[in-house]
Amino acid sequence: MHDRLVIAGREFQSRLWVGTGKYKDFAETKKAIDASGADVVTVAVRRVNITDRSKENLLDYLDPKKYIILPNTAGCYTVEDAVRYARLGRAAGVSDLVKLEVIGDEKTLFPDTAGLIEAAKILIKEGFIVLPYTNDDPIVAKKLVDIGCPAVMPLAAPIGSGLGIRNPYNLKIIMETVKVPIIVDAGVGTASDAALAMEYGADAVLMNTAIAGAQDPLAMAEAMKYAVWAGRLAYKAGRIPRKLYATASSPIEGML
C-alpha cells in the first residue's frame, strides 16, 4: 500500500502511533505494540534507577532499529523543563524527533500553547524535528506550522480521558488550515474514535491509555490497527453526502 505518511522527509509505515506507558510490564508493552502494528512509539525520559539495576530497560524490548523511538517531554510544565527534557531525549536516543509537550494544568493536562510555541522555537533552532502536542485550536496550529513544525498533534480530548473527539469541527478546520500532517493525539477511548479521526482526514492517530487501559490491551491494539486503516480508507474513498430523505438503491425499472 503506497499510502505512506511522510513528515520532514521521513517516511512512516503506520498511521497508528502508540505510547508505552501504563502497561503491566515490558513484555505486555511489546506484545500490544506489535498487535497495533505501530512503528512509532513514544517514550518518556526519566532518571535511571541506579540503586536497583535489576530493573529492565524498555529498549531491551523495543529495538530502536525496528521502531522509531519518539521521546516526549511529558510531565514538563515550563518552557525550560520541556527544552531540557527534549535535549536529554535527543542525547539518549538517536534522532532529532521530539514530541513536545508543555503542560498547562495538572487537572486537564491541557497544553500551555504559549509555552509550547516558545519551546518549539528554541528547539527548531537547535535542529529538532518538533511534533507539538497542542490544543484543538486552529490558530495555534497555524502558528506552530509557521515557526517550522513539520506536523501538529492536536488533542481529541484530555489525555487519558477516553472521551473521543470533543471538537470535530475545530479538528476539521485545523486540517483545512494547515498543510502539514495532523496527528490526533490523546483522548481516544475506543476504535470508533480512531476511525472517526481518520475519516475526518487526520494523517495519523497517537494513543496510549485507550490500548494500555483496555481490559484486553492486545485485542484493543489490534482493534485500533483496523480502525485506523478503515478510517483512512474511508477518508480516501470519499463518503456519500448526508441527506434527510431516502434514496432507493434498487431501480424502479423492471418492476411489475
Binding site: 505510547g19 508493552t29 513514544t42
Partner: peptide
C-alpha cells in the same frame, strides 16, 4: 550528575 533513559510513557 543526572543519568536518564527512556521509560514507558505516552503523555502527561
Amino acid at each position: 550528575v543526572e543519568i536518564l533513559s527512556f521509560i514507558g510513557g505516552g503523555a502527561n
